Simulated scan of single mutants.
Amino acid sequence: MPRSDARRNYARILAVAEEEVAAHGAEASLEQIARTAGVGSATVRRHFPSRQALLEAVFRQQVDALAGRARDLAEAPDPRAALLEWLSALTTYAATARGLATALVRDEGSSAHACSATMTEAGVPLVRRAAEAGAVGPEVTAEDLIAVVTGIVLATEHHRDPAGEAQRLLALAVRGISPAG
Rank of each mutant, 00 (worst) to 15 (best):
A114R: 14
R60L: 12
E75I: 12
A70V: 13
R7N: 10
G109I: 09
D5Y: 10
T91I: 02
A103C: 14
V39G: 06
E139I: 03
L87A: 05
A95R: 02
R51K: 15
E20D: 08
D64H: 14
L90I: 10
R128H: 10
L54Q: 05
A95G: 07
G68C: 13
R8Y: 12
R60T: 10
R168L: 04
A57K: 02
A76W: 10
G176K: 06
L73A: 10
G25F: 04
T156R: 02
W86V: 03
G99E: 06
S4F: 09
V153T: 06
A135W: 03
L73P: 02
V174H: 12
G151Y: 01
T150A: 08
A74G: 04
T156Q: 04
P77W: 05
A147P: 02
A166Q: 02
M119S: 11
A53P: 00
A17K: 02
A135H: 03
I152Y: 03
T156E: 04
A89N: 08
Q167R: 14
R7P: 00
R106T: 12
A74C: 09
D64N: 14
E157K: 02
A23I: 07
I152L: 04
R129F: 00
A171K: 05
A74S: 15
T96L: 14
H24G: 04
E121N: 13
R71T: 15
A23E: 14
A97Y: 04
A89D: 10
S88W: 06
A11F: 12
H158N: 12
G68Y: 09
W86A: 00
R60Y: 01
A67W: 08
H159C: 04
R160E: 14
E27T: 10
D72R: 13
P2L: 14
A97S: 12
V105P: 01
V58W: 01
V149I: 11
R168G: 01
A74E: 11
A28N: 08
D161L: 08
A89G: 05
R160S: 11
A74P: 04
L90V: 15
A17S: 12
R60H: 10
E56C: 05
A94N: 11
I177P: 01
A57H: 01
T96M: 11
M1Y: 06
G123Y: 03
P179E: 05
E31D: 14
A37G: 11
A57S: 15
D161R: 09
T120P: 07
A95V: 08
M1T: 09
G176L: 12
G109E: 15
G164N: 02
T120W: 05
T118V: 13
T118C: 09
G164F: 05
D78R: 07
I13L: 15
M1D: 09
A65E: 07
I33D: 01
V127K: 05
A133T: 00
L84F: 13
A95P: 00
E18A: 14
S116A: 14
A89Y: 07
